[in-house]
């Protein structure tokens, strides 16, 4: 007689508490030690402490506030405009047959175009100032928002819409009480993509032509071989991305508590 061996384990990864933070701390500490011991050239890759010192210096001089304010303003306006337009078009494609087929053709044709490639064209159209930067951001945010909103609207169960009709809900009520909340998870998932896209396009647009902004600051630091300042700018961008991701998580937890 033999005991039946267990063979059903594995394939069930779980989140280990504190493992993520601990990993980051270990990487940064190793980096600092390697720099201090001279194992890596701090001219090409400054030590974490040097980057923090550069960041503190930028904050104290007021330079960080100036660049960050310019970037945040562009990010907020560009993202909001692209999102608003994307939501409207996404809902129109999801709800109206007349909008759906022609709209999808246009979206499918333009979505794959790398938006960075359009920056020179936008500069020709809207000038080197704020207009071209906001349009670049808005354009980049618009398409993923349309696609996610459309997927969200399409994903709303027909049975729920039938139910709403059977109880005499108006078209507006079906839209606000069934379609919008039903599409919200997909829309919020799209926000994660569009905020990341917006930061990428923001930096690209600021590198092409801006006096102020984190992208312009990073480019200028690179031109001066000031790698401490360059990585301080990149750290700010990373923290900006993390903060936005955290805010979206909070928003999801609040709006999608029913899940």
């Amino acid at each position: 007689m033999r005991e039946v061996g267990f063979r059903g384990g594995g394939f069930a990864p779980r989140n280990l508490p504190f493992a993520g933070a601990l990993t980051l701390v270990l990487v940064v500490a190793s980096w600092q030690i390697a720099a201090s011991l001279g194992w890596i050239s701090t001219r090409f890759l400054p030590a974490p402490l040097a980057i923090i010192q550069a960041l503190v210096g930028l904050a104290q001089s007021g330079e960080l506030r100036l660049h960050l304010a310019a970037s945040l303003s562009r990010l907020a306006w560009g993202w909001a405009a692209g999102t608003a337009a994307g939501l409207m078009v996404g809902f129109a494609l999801g709800l109206f047959s007349l909008a759906r087929t022609p709209g999808l053709a246009i979206v499918s044709a333009l979505f794959p175009v790398p938006k960075i490639a359009l920056v020179p064209l936008f500069i020709v159209w809207f000038g080197i100032g704020e207009g071209s930067k906001l349009v670049t951001l808005g354009f980049g945010v618009f398409f993923p928002t349309v696609i996610n909103t459309l997927a969200g609207v399409d994903g709303v169960s027909r049975s729920l819409i039938r139910m709403g009709q059977s109880f005499g809900l108006s078209r507006t009520a079906i839209l606000t009480k069934i379609v919008l909340p039903g599409a919200l998870p997909a829309i919020l998932a799209g926000f994660r993509i569009t905020t990341a896209t917006a930061i990428i396009l923001l930096v690209a647009a600021e590198m092409i032509g801006a006096e102020y902004g984190i992208g312009a600051f990073v480019l200028s630091a690179g031109n001066l071989y000031d790698t401490d300042a360059l990585l301080a700018g990149i750290t700010v961008l990373s923290l900006l991305g993390l903060s936005i991701s955290w805010a979206i998580s909070r928003l999801e937890r609040w709006l999608l508590a029913w899940r």
Partner: peptide, 16 residues
């Protein structure tokens, strides 16, 4: 308030 009223096979409850 709604003369012809359905009860659905899949319940059709709004999860939110």
């Amino acid at each position: 308030l709604n003369p012809l009223t359905y009860v659905f096979q899949d319940f059709a409850l709004l999860p939110w």
